[in-house]
């Protein structure tokens, strides 16, 4: 490998390294289990590195890379749907029993499932991805003010889900 390419790779790895744990949680919330989440993060790592030339330095790196990760997770879910049609699986979020926190994961996913896609999307980025408003705005390509109002609406909807559960 030429020295320049090695430098690019090292820089990219340095940027991604502190984001990996939250990327794991975010992918896990989207795809529903740890094994597939790991595959999605690996895929996003490669895609991010290959598209590094397209990254604009003035934008939030975390938001940019998380949007790639999100697409990788959606691709994985789409592939699973196709496999499901071929092999007769019915679930799109297929939990794996080796996942030690599968119980808690399912509880969270069930609550998230009661929200609209827009509300779910923003909560996933905020809580699982631990993204700031700036990162979320970059990832979803929306203004930061919209992030705040959409996140607030999502929290209200989530509170309503808890209220319904308590009844």
């Amino acid at each position: 490998m030429e020295p320049r390419a090695r430098l690019h790779q090292a820089t990219f790895e340095q940027l991604v390294e502190p984001l990996l744990e939250r990327a794991g949680a975010y992918a896990r919330a989207l795809v529903g289990n740890r094994t597939d989440a790991e595959d999605a993060v690996q895929d996003a790592l490669l895609k991010g590195y290959r598209n590094l030339a397209r990254y604009d330095n003035s934008r939030a790196f975390k938001g940019w890379w998380f949007s790639i990760l999100r697409n990788c997770c959606l691709d994985l879910i789409r592939r699973r749907k196709v496999q499901g049609k071929i092999f007769g699986w019915t679930q799109t979020r297929r939990p794996v029993t080796s996942d030690p926190d599968v119980g808690q994961t399912q509880e969270l996913l069930v609550r998230l499932g009661q929200l609209t896609p827009l509300q779910r999307e923003i909560l996933e980025l905020r809580y699982f991805g631990d993204c700031s408003y700036h990162d979320i705005a970059e990832s979803l390509r929306i203004p930061e003010g919209t992030v705040m109002s959409r996140l607030h609406a999502a929290r209200q909807a989530l509170a309503e889900v808890y209220r319904k559960e308590e009844k």
Partner: peptide, 9 residues
């Protein structure tokens, strides 16, 4: 749900 994925560029 936080975990460290075993990934390598």
């Amino acid at each position: 749900l936080v975990f460290r994925p075993q990934v390598s560029l």
